[in-house]
Design a protein around this nucleic acid. Sequence first.
DNA 1: TGTGAAAGCGTTGCCTC
DNA 2: GAGGCAACGCTTTCACA
Lengths: 160, 160
Amino acid sequence: MKKSLPETVTLDEFDIRILRILRDEARIAVQDLSERIGLSPTPVARRIRNLEASGIITGYAAMIDEAALGYSVTVFVSVKLDRQVDQALADFENAIRDCPEVVDCWLMTGNRDYLLRVVTDGLAGFEEFLTGRLTRLPAVSSIESSIPLRRVKAGISRQP
Amino acid sequence: MKKSLPETVTLDEFDIRILRILRDEARIAVQDLSERIGLSPTPVARRIRNLEASGIITGYAAMIDEAALGYSVTVFVSVKLDRQVDQALADFENAIRDCPEVVDCWLMTGNRDYLLRVVTDGLAGFEEFLTGRLTRLPAVSSIESSIPLRRVKAGISRQP
DNA sequence: TGTGAAAGCGTTGCCTC
DNA sequence: GAGGCAACGCTTTCACA
């Protein structure tokens, strides 16, 4: 039932604990990590390498305070395309992947519209993105923006 | 000792390049990083420590493939509260922070509703979260769920 | 910011269970 | 099969220029 995944890796308690710690402190030393979970460094390093090789750990990211960098505006944008053929979707997605302003993008069910999280250095920058880039993409028919007041919980991935 | 507000830190080209690299490869060795940006390891380590201390780097996260862990379902949930006094918001937010299913949560402008990204190990798990936890929170008046087909772009933060 | 020495850490081969 | 130990080599750190 639960083996539809490409990787049928089985994770034991140690793997789960490693993931749990690495999820929050990705730059921790293997040695410190091994002390915390009660194993010696050797198997911990092996387990981390296996988790990386099997695709369970897909990478490590520094979490950067966007506001401190001057990116103070986050907007959620809902985009609808007027043509929903595969080519239009693919073209739109390729264009989105080239936009640094778009941090996150999901294709939604239903009317096959997209949900984007857009980050800019101000409302002027957002307007520029909207009028200068987004509305100029072919097949874009309607755009709806929602502005958040604040982020209540900031997660990267679900905790095991 | 120039410890000022996080917003007023000035970043030079080296800092930006360090952030850009750490953003994608947070576990890179300082030595490798220093070779890539053309500085010796010592100042690079110092810069990283300063970036952490000034709050520009808020942490490091391992990116974990949720599907490989069995968390195959992502749902965006829009929640509206019937009372919008501060206490109701605070209570709701505290409850949300305790839900491992809720990966990300934003308070939106307008009708002051919340946008949640919920991750579970299946639709049954989602239903359990919905009926067992979310609808039981006080002040929750309406809930709307949207299911994504796929993630087009998966970002952590805006690239500098 | 860079250099060099010292301390700390990760990696590997081998052994044990 | 997986964990642990020890030694080697690389990385980080600190004093000082």
